[in-house]
Design a protein around this nucleic acid. Structure first.
Lengths: 291, 291
DNA sequence: TGCCCTCGATAACCCTCATTTATCGCCCCC
DNA sequence: GGGGGCGATAAATGAGGGTTATCGAGGGCA
């Protein structure tokens, strides 16, 4: 058995296409096809359903894929550990981040990047479910998401900051804060309902008996912030404001009664062996201070 | 990088000798030497200290060895998972057991072996510290030891039975139990002091202010039991008696005041991926009933 | 229905590279 | 000082993974 074969299997599962998988592995299509077939022969298990085209992994293939990924993660760890031992720390840190926390990604990564010029970063916007999935499949090294109801079984959680909420508005009020209940029937620009940040907001408002009027909905933070700049009222996370500031002519009112806060943090694989980049990230995390 | 190279490194660390390591891998000595050297070249790290003979792994080598072992464990998991998917469950289960629990090993393994004729078993008598070490190094699949003060961080613990204690004696007493304090100054046959079972006994006796007189000490359960058969008084674990019975002409008195009991259980690596033999063992464990 | 295009399998050749055998150099120990 | 153990080196070899070229089967479309 070759490590290459495991990489091929992983790529095939990812690309769902022999040709693309081969390209991703920088080999010819026959090379990959033959290698997969030999792997099947050696293991005595059919890995891939093919009815002339790629169909899907077999159930056995999916089970074995997880072992293959575990193995490849070991190799990857070996390689990067070796690299960090001989030269200065380098490599690519793949980070999955829920959209709400994306604006904070730079804050989190900044100390790491400053301390280790050789380290590259890859930020992928993912849902919290996808983050869990990708962590298992070793598609990302770590995830940033809400910690509230994490199973905590397979992953280690490190708190980064508490997400709190403010109302961005052009209204000319004298107060610096506003009760959630006052948003009843107020036309807002919000994230789309499938996003957790939105569900949190909806939850609080429902709890206070307030009707939600989402005049504008978007699944993009950037879009939301651009509407804010255009004068639309939004319920936003505090971190966004510390990063982008409050738009001209608008005010940020702290939302109270209740003062909602949700922990956002780093999810890392729970393993006794921690890859060097991850170690560095966790160390650097100590310096991060987000209000 | 080849899986073979990682196996070579693992073997070398185990055998501490190029020639023996090569033999263990069923290859010639130059093959292994060259492979290790290439691995060092590829990783840019010196793995082995050699002053003409094999000396030791370098500190870097030891760090990387752990990754290599993790990787190889993944491959092993892949292989056995594949085997169990296509044919009936087979493979070798390597079990580390503290001496005290060795007599119970058969009880634990019996249901597994009955359910899966293809499964082989390897029982190694190890100290609890060695069990921890070997689990990390993937030298064993699971361990049986005291659960009492396990860190519980890196391993999963499954209770098997509670170890309780009795006095084997030829004395012709009418009672069926005896207080620990009564053993003060009593000549006994006991395990050697470095063994945990003995330390437990010593602890209880010291707590009750009783002097321990170990006329005979041994680090072997078999030897201890043979002295018991010869009429010597011993403090023994209850499981031993249920297995071997009470020797002719002797009686087993339950040790009370206090009634000491210590959990003995299975330690398995804490990972989301569980090898098939281990899964089977854990399932079979449900049927085990040890008084 | 027939053409074409896509996708994966097969075939034949190549060429890298791990492995083997043979041998050397070094050190330790008698 | 010689023998033996240990690991490195050299040369020969062959197994096997990689490549290009080609085929065959569907599916879509006119």
């Amino acid at each position: 058995m070759f490590l290459r074969q495991l990489e091929y299997l992983d790529a095939l599962a990812r690309e769902r296409h022999f040709g693309r998988a081969a390209k991703a592995c920088h080999v010819s299509q026959p090379a990959l096809s033959v290698a997969i077939r030999k792997l099947e022969r050696e293991l005595g298990v059919e890995l891939v359903h093919r009815d002339r085209h790629y169909d899907d992994l077999t159930p056995e293939g999916r089970k074995l894929l997880r072992w293959a990924q575990q193995t490849l993660a070991g190799v990857e760890g070996l390689r990067s550990e070796a690299a960090s031992l001989s030269r200065e720390l380098s490599g690519r840190l793949r980070l999955g981040v829920i959209p709400t926390a994306l604006p904070a990604a730079a804050l989190v990564a900044q100390p790491l990047l400053r301390a280790h010029p050789g380290v590259d970063l890859e930020i992928r916007s993912l849902s919290s479910i996808e983050i869990g999935r990708e962590l298992e499949a070793h598609g990302i090294d770590a995830g940033i998401t809400y910690l509230d109801n994490e199973p905590l079984g397979k992953v280690r959680a490190t708190r980064i900051y508490d997400e709190t909420y403010a109302l961005l508005t052009a209204d000319d009020r004298p107060e610096t804060q506003i009760a959630w209940a006052r948003l009843d029937g107020y036309p807002l620009c919000l994230l789309t309902p499938e996003m957790q940040n939105r569900r949190i907001i909806d939850g609080v408002l429902a709890d206070r008996g307030a009707r939600v009027v989402a005049r504008i909905e978007t699944n993009s933070i950037s879009a939301l912030l651009s509407f804010a700049r255009a004068g639309w009222s939004c319920v936003v996370s505090r971190v966004w404001l510390t990063l982008y500031g409050v738009p001209e002519g608008m005010r940020a009112l702290t939302l109270v009664d209740p003062e909602v806060s949700h922990e956002v943090g780093l999810l890392t694989p729970k393993s006794d062996l921690v890859a060097p980049v991850l170690r560095a990230l966790l160390e650097a995390l100590g310096e991060v201070q987000i209000p």
